[in-house]
């Protein structure tokens, strides 16, 4: 099965799911960072321009620091994201899911030179596409990867607040599917809601034939049971 997410197994045997970030979104993040650096550079150049040769010297020191320290400082001290990555909701982590280390961040940013070759990060883009989880050479050397920071979808909860016990034991992903249905129902067309609910309807109430709306409501009620919602929460919502 093709999928974007990747599982990292922790020493405790728990699977963490991360979603490696691809070429386009990282290009955008880079462009944002690049613009920020460019603005700082221009301002510094104007200010230091008054100092002649001294200014040029100081400016080149600043350019050096901007180019090499900017990503490292942000990645190590601000939760793995430069401002560009933050805006695109990306984050650098170690391969094993831990926060990025100083040495890894330095390695992956020093190797930008290689990824840049021959022009405009072509090497980096090619290795990102070829490596399974969108890692450029710098990432491979530093054992890091860039992942999406938030992969939790937040939906509104349905208006129904009755609860109904599960008719039989469901597996975890089946429970999740019912909750997903209840939470995403608003985004589905009515006909589609009926269609989906009717798949389960004969199983949930084999004796009676339910109307479409009853079938949908049944799923909402089971979902409420699963997420542990009490009827008192309706007032909070309204």
């Amino acid at each position: 099965m093709l999928d974007t997410s990747e599982k990292i197994e922790t020493p405790e045997g728990v699977d963490l799911e991360v979603v490696p970030a691809g070429v386009i979104v990282r290009c955008l993040a880079y462009l944002i960072d690049f613009s920020i650096r460019a603005v700082i550079f221009i301002v510094l150049a104007i200010l230091l321009g008054w100092l002649g040769d001294l200014g040029a010297g100081v400016l080149s020191i600043f350019v050096f620091l901007l180019e090499w320290l900017y990503p490292v400082v942000f990645e190590v001290f601000i939760n793995g994201s430069t401002p560009g990555k933050k805006l695109m909701k990306l984050r650098v982590i170690q391969e094993d899911g831990t926060p990025v280390k100083l040495s890894s961040s330095v390695i992956r940013n020093l190797l930008r030179v290689v990824d840049f070759l021959p022009l405009g990060y072509l090497t980096g883009m090619i290795t990102m596409v070829l490596s399974g989880n969108f890692r450029r050479l710098g990432d491979m050397a530093a054992e890091t990867m860039v992942v999406y920071d938030d992969s939790v979808n937040i939906y509104s909860i349905s208006e129904h607040c009755q609860r109904r016990p599960l008719p039989m034991p469901f597996k975890l992903f089946e429970q999740q599917a019912i909750i997903q249905f209840s939470q995403r129902a608003e985004g589905l067309s009515e006909a589609r809601q009926f269609e989906l609910a009717n798949i389960l309807s004969p199983m949930l109430s084999p004796t009676t034939t339910e109307t479409n709306q009853q079938a949908v409501d049944a799923l909402h009620e089971i979902s409420n049971e699963l997420i542990g919602r009490t009827s008192g929460e309706q007032e909070v919502k309204s």
């Binding site: 099965m1 093709l2 974007t4 997410s5 970030a21 386009i24 979104v25 695109m88």
Partner: peptide
């Protein structure tokens, strides 16, 4: 043959790259 699930904007785009791979 792919995992259907709601993906956020750019993640969906990345899935395209995986398809090409």
């Amino acid at each position: 043959v792919f995992v259907a699930k709601p993906r956020k904007g750019y993640e969906a785009l990345d899935f395209g790259f995986i398809m090409v791979r």
